[in-house]
């Protein structure tokens, strides 16, 4: 099982780095969906020995929502808004890749400082979780489109989920479902909001919302 967990964690990290270097919104959504699947798999692998139905259920719900519901909602928004890719981000893609490596180093350093006891094959989970959160925050900060920021939010949530999984051990099902519900609500609201921003302004660039200040 350790090998599978490790492989999933490494794949998760690679998806993070891919998010730093991708400009196409469709690809970003797909990557975020893949992350959702990977998280569900990690949760399943981590509890493979002790067969707890509750965990399987939550993981499955997570996979369904993150891999199918969110992408569906977001892709629909893209179609409505008619945007394909992030043009002129605040931080260029080459520099973003460099930033991603720096953040990766930082998250490894952070995790080394955190006093957490982890089993074999799980030493990379904490850095991966922190890195995923960083990725989400970076997307929110460094990109222009509301949609990318929404993806950033989802990714950030992914990181927290992973962190919670190892740091707290068993999250009460209610809390976990609550977070998921939160994310669903957020994505829906943002979808609606973006639809309206787009209808009013013919674009979804959030930085130009400052013109509303009057």
């Amino acid at each position: 099982m350790e090998t599978y967990i490790e492989a999933s964690v490494i794949l998760l990290l690679l998806t993070d780095i891919a998010l730093f270097g991708t400009s196409r919104l469709y690809t970003c959504i797909t990557i975020a969906a893949v992350q959702g699947v990977l998280l569900g798999l990690i949760a399943l692998f981590a509890n493979a020995e002790t067969f707890i139905p509750r965990i399987i259920v939550i993981a499955s719900i997570g996979i369904v929502i993150k891999a199918f519901v969110f992408p569906y909602l977001l892709k629909r928004t893209i179609r409505q808004a008619g945007v394909q890719r992030e043009i002129q981000p605040f931080i260029g893609y080459l520099s973003s890749l460099v930033v991603s490596l720096v953040l990766f180093g930082v998250s490894i350093w952070f995790s080394a400082k955190l006093p957490l006891a982890l089993g074999a094959g799980r030493s990379m989970i904490i850095p991966a979780a922190i890195m995923t959160m960083f990725t989400g925050l970076f997307l929110i900060v460094a990109r222009r489109k509301a949609l990318t920021q929404c993806i950033g939010y989802i990714v950030c949530e992914n990181g927290m989920y992973l962190f919670g999984m190892v740091a707290v051990g068993e999250i009460p099902a209610l809390v976990e479902l609550g977070i998921l519900l939160d994310a669903v609500a957020a994505v829906t609201v943002m979808g609606v909001a973006m639809y309206h921003i787009n209808r009013e302004f013919d674009h979804i660039d959030t930085d130009r919302l400052s013109s509303l200040k009057g």
Partner: peptide
């Protein structure tokens, strides 16, 4: 092209970090 090579570099650096833990 530089972006492609930078991505390859990112892969290599990730590998290096993994190998060091």
């Amino acid at each position: 092209v530089p972006q492609l090579l930078a991505a390859a570099g990112a892969l290599a650096i990730c590998a290096l970090i993994f190998s060091m833990r």
